[in-house]
Amino acid sequence: MQIAQVMTCNVLTVSPRGELDRAAQLMVERKVGSAVVVDDGVIVGIITERDVLQAVARGLVPWHTQVSECMTAEPFVVGPETPADEALALMMTKGFRHLPVAEDGRLVGLVSLRDLVSQGAKP
């Protein structure tokens, strides 16, 4: 199974200069747990619920904090043709729940642990 078969194509993207509370709003509206941070068409980071948790734990004020201050910069990226088990191994060893999927440097999707689990857990 390849990542292209399980990834989500309609990915939420946010700007590194956006505010944290606005990014949280977009994630809640879109019912997602992460957003890819894109600047001028280039993937510069990923922001997940975990990053939001850490920002709040650090005492950052959500409406005075930019996404760039709390995102994970330069995230691991997989390709649409990466085998699903390879992506899963990467997630489990590195502790990631989400990986952006890029082709020729362009964002084409996002794959989550949940996407992989739903596939694996089907009887």
């Binding site: 509370d21 949280a24 709003q25 809640v28 619920e49 939001v52 709040v56 409406w63």
Partner: peptide, 12 residues
């Protein structure tokens, strides 16, 4: 969970 914290921030 983390998700609930996200909702809180989204609410301002």
């Amino acid at each position: 969970a983390e998700r609930d914290l996200l909702r809180a921030l989204a609410d301002g």
